[in-house]
């Protein structure tokens, strides 16, 4: 995985802690997107042929190449289902999240 990591956001205690202009550090994540999900994509690794279509079409870039074909960063997957819909061998199932 080659992407920004979540860091804890420290609330400014003093005016000096705020950015001095409208600029701010890129790739600065303080919040996950996992809570948006009602269905979670689950990859059947036996059925997966590692064609990488899901990796290419994930709007959020949460699918990544791994030692075991592809994996999903569930911290940022929104559960849109584009991967499951695009998989030509039906190796990804959308499974309802339990609360």
């Amino acid at each position: 995985m080659n992407r920004p990591k979540v860091t804890e956001f420290k609330k400014a205690k003093h005016i000096n802690d705020y950015p001095t202009g409208p600029g701010f550090q890129g790739g600065h994540l303080v919040d996950k997107n996992a809570g948006w999900r009602t269905f979670r994509p689950v990859i059947d690794k036996d059925a997966c042929v590692n064609c990488l279509i899901c990796y290419m079409i994930c709007p959020d870039g949460t699918i990544y190449k791994s030692d075991d074909k592809v994996d999903i960063d569930y911290d940022f997957c929104k559960g849109c289902g584009v991967c499951a819909n695009g998989c030509n061998v039906n190796a990804i199932k959308m499974v309802k999240e339990e609360l």
Binding site: N33, I53, Y55, D60, G61, K65
Partner: peptide, 23 residues
Amino acid sequence: AKNITDKEYFYGHKACAGCGGSL
């Protein structure tokens, strides 16, 4: 898909689920 960088440059954005523009 094989030779494109693994690095993500648009990550953790708040676009609607399934947003084509964000892809």
